[in-house]
Design a protein around this nucleic acid. Structure first.
Lengths: 219, 219
DNA sequence: AAATTATTTTAGCCTTGTCTAAATTTCTTT
DNA sequence: AAAGAAATTTAGACAAGGCTAAAATAATTT
């Protein structure tokens, strides 16, 4: 049995690796809210257990064994997020927080029951793909909203779950995964991006727009 | 925020107090699966925090503050047990094990959602009363099956959840809370108790019969 | 290329919750 | 009531996982 701490580190390493490519001590320190020194010592332990590889002063990388565990935790997390929303009506900006705790206590049996209850879903409430039981996960081709040219019809694929406030705002304007919308304009001087959905125009800050992944809609 | 360990101790103290009256170091050691020395040191900490009172070499007792927390945990535990059975079909001999983990990660919000989903239930799948949100719990008048005289019609009130194997046996013969049955005979020399339900007779060992609480059925 | 700055690691300490072994205290038996 | 047995506490150690301060290395600027 792995400690909750180890599970958190493996998940964080996976996520940093996905979004930034390289996994530095300071990135993990930041992400996990612990000191860099603590990261170094945990990194040493994870290396000894062959869950990651590590070259001093360079980054860290998951071994296949470590990756498998990270994806199991992420699978738990995303299944729980969707379950809480579907079965108990928890709003989408709160599910992440709850799932952070539940992901560590989910038995395989319960995982299967929840999976079945949900009809073997492939994405969570934020549009993130749910890893499969075998430790594989689909990879999608999409762009950040911030990089899309104006006058394009796009479909929302995924929204980062890291900021509840952003999620409440987006929910308020009806922007969810699968929603289609038009990128109307990008205001100059790093101003907001204007999108149109359900007939109304809404501003979305450039920073927020980095966390909204979209694909060109079939038109 | 209290540690999982502290929550486990408070719950154990409450349960031992209920079933044995006095709470000794060794009883807690046994119940929690830790050494007596560990119990002593945790007892010291809980006393300092005014969650229990303790006189050296005599027992331990919950303060009102400690009791409130214990009942909150037990409320979580029992709500989760019932929820897992009702919403996800987890068999009644497995819900206890799962709830042992879930009770520590349940937010107040989720507690309320589950409570509402279940229609504000008053007992868990084993017939144990669910403490109310305000920290009170109903106390029922009932007897252990082992103490009932033969030739009595009784109704099952509650079954201990501590032994999954016993629960599987009882489920197999259709013995659940609310079930009515007749105590046919008590075999001599500490032999089993014979009960009749749904037209069949079944033997129940004296030891098991200590863990089955019943009341006289209205006849 | 040297100096400064930023990142990472080492060293050493702390807290939590556990353990074993030994010392106390209480209980039980004779 | 004294001896032996059982229960409890004390003393001291350990593993996990965190921290700070200082040292080492890498990256950047001048």
């Amino acid at each position: 049995m792995l400690s909750q701490s180890i599970e958190d580190y493996l998940k964080a390493i996976y996520e940093v690796e996905s979004s930034e490519g390289k996994v530095s001590t300071s990135a993990l320190s930041e992400k996990l809210g612990v000191s860099p020194a603590s990261v170094t010592s945990m990194v040493k332990k994870l290396s000894e257990r062959k869950l990651i590889t590590h070259k001093r002063y360079q980054g860290v990388k998951l071994t296949p064994a470590g990756k498998k565990i990270a994806l199991e935790i992420i699978r738990h997390h995303r299944l729980v997020e969707l379950y809480l929303k579907e079965a108990l009506g928890v709003p989408w900006d709160q599910v992440h927080q709850e799932a952070e705790k539940w992901e560590h206590v989910l038995s395989e049996d319960l995982e299967d029951r929840i999976d079945k209850f949900l009809g073997y879903p492939v994405t969570d409430p934020h549009g993130s793909p749910i890893p499969r039981r075998d430790g594989t996960m689909i990879v999608r081709q999409c762009n950040a909203l911030v990089d899309v040219e104006p006058d394009t019809l796009v479909k929302v694929v995924e929204v980062s779950d890291h900021d509840p406030e952003l999620l409440r705002y987006l929910g308020g304007i009806g922007l969810y995964p699968e929603t289609e919308m038009t990128v109307v304009s990008k205001q100059p001087f790093k101003g907001p991006i204007i999108v149109e959905l359900t007939g109304k125009e809404h501003p979305i800050g450039r920073n927020a727009a980095k966390y909204i992944m979209v694909e060109k809609a079939r038109n």
